[in-house]
Amino acid sequence: MIEIENLTKSFGPIAAVRGIDLRVAKGEVLGFLGPNGAGKSTTMKIIAGYLSPTTGRVRIAGHDVESDLQAAQRVLGYLPEGAPAYGDMTPRQFLKFIAAVRGYSGTEAKDRAALAAQRAELEPVLEQPIDTLSKGFKRRVGLAQAILHDPPVLVMDEPTDGLDPNQKHSVRKLIREMAAEKAIIISTHLLEEVDAICSRAVIIDRGRIVADGTPAELLARSRFHNAVTLTLPATQAASAKAKLATHREVLSIEDGSEHRGLVTLTAFPRNATILIDDVSALATEEKWDVKELYAEPGRLDEVFRSLTTSDSERVRALKEGVAA
């Protein structure tokens, strides 16, 4: 449904997007990850037709964004960063305006607006000016606007940013409900969100895709993948550590600091072998007083950090790039 080919975008000497290729099919929820300034929002703005690409092309449901913009925008629901809306209008007026712009009239416009408001749980605030709404409601007004015409393609820039955990939960529920019959891209820097709703995650850094896979595949890249963490009394820690180190599949062991007489050890496997069975057997055999024992699925934040650059590094690199 969404096809992006060799997309680049430069603002003067600064290259914000440097060659992105991406295809998103119906039924996919793609999580767009990356540090601030990596090019997430720029890419989404180009998909929505707000910015023109420097090179490359974008097609939405077969419509080229450059040559057939309006057709592409008709099948697209877009939530811009920060969910802008006309503050002097009430959500009801605003949604009716969106319905009218999208070509609905009469009862259909009314029904569409009402349904979108209901799905985004806006009913309690329908008659309040948007300017007076809380951040959570404002974000949901933007969401309602994006889904009003039930678009086959949905692009949302940080849909859960600034929401409290309950609001996040309801927005995620809504996205999950729509996932089956739409192609959806959401950007986020909440890694938990990828686990919660995305069927696929793409990490971009400095305008390039550095990872693309299911959340499980990304987790498998973590050095914590299949590692075993166990907590046991400090008195047994040294011997347990020595014993674990003799296991041929254990690559290394890290230990945390002592807390209330307990120590946490993490054993990292060679080649992502599953260690948990062996470690658990060993613990029984050696009669360690294990308080906690679990296999790590991997840590997304660690994968994220290893693949992306911090903003200070990035600014430095950019300046060098400009100078060169």
């Binding site: 703005k45 929505a48 037709g49 707000y50 309006q70 057709a71 925008q73 008709r74 697209l76 877009y78 811009p80 960063e81 920060g82 802008p84 809306a85 006309y86 969106i98 712009v101 999208r102 070509g103 606007q145």
Partner: peptide
């Protein structure tokens, strides 16, 4: 920022 909304409507 509403200009982004306006220009991305069809």
């Amino acid at each position: 920022g509403t200009i982004e909304l306006l220009l991305t409507l069809p």
